[in-house]
């Protein structure tokens, strides 16, 4: 398989948020601002790439019966590692994302890619798949976060440009997440169909 194709597939054809509709919990909960969406996306990408690589390495020796526990242990290890690193060196990000960092363990994108891709492919391809899906997820979360931040807080990447009385708070809250996500999905899929 073409290497570039794997990455592009992860961003467009298999976009985890807009096409596969996986990992909705962090998508909806953490995208209150562009920067939060971006950091959540990058955090997930970190775990995704490493977990994909390790799982593609150990897949041949893991018996079928225990493959899920083994994969979860591997994923949980990287998530814990990530949380320790964030706490130590970028505590602000850790505070902003809070509970959703440990919850990356149960993000179905990661287990889904491990089951669906990494255990059938080599290390290199799995890493590329992790990068592609990771970029796709990060882009989706950043765009969603940016739209919600512009409409709900009148700013983009914390740069304020709309006055306080014009901010639509509904978009920073849960209902706004669902509404924005729905419309972004519509736009994304319309755009992809046109491409074909």
């Amino acid at each position: 398989m073409n290497k570039f194709r794997i990455i592009l597939d992860g961003i467009v054809k298999n976009n985890p948020t807009f096409v596969l509709i996986l990992g909705m919990c962090p998508t909806l909960a953490t995208t209150t601002s562009a920067i939060n969406g971006l950091s959540m996306g990058l955090a997930t990408m970190f775990v995704l790439i490493l977990a994909n690589m390790v799982i593609s390495l150990i897949a041949p020796i893991v018996p079928d019966k225990v493959h899920i526990p083994v994969y979860i242990v591997v994923i949980a290890t990287f998530v814990t590692l990530l949380q320790l690193l964030l706490k130590a060196y970028v505590p602000a990000v850790n505070d902003a994302l809070g509970l959703f960092i440990p919850l990356i363990v149960v993000n179905c994108i990661i287990l889904g890619r491990a089951e669906g891709f990494a255990n059938k492919h080599g290390v290199g391809e799995s890493a590329l798949d992790g990068i592609g899906i990771g970029i796709g997820f990060t882009l989706a979360l950043t765009v969603l976060g940016a739209v919600r931040e512009i409409l709900g807080s009148g700013s983009i990447f914390n740069v304020q440009f709309i006055g306080e009385q014009y901010q639509m708070l509904a978009f920073v809250m849960a209902p706004g997440a669902f509404i924005c996500l729905g419309y972004l999905m519509v736009l994304f899929n319309k755009f992809i169909k046109k491409e074909k």
């Binding site: 018996p63 019966k65 225990v66």
Partner: peptide, 8 residues
């Protein structure tokens, strides 16, 4: 099986 899980 046990070996792999323990090892990991």
């Amino acid at each position: 099986m046990v070996l792999v899980l323990t090892g990991v």
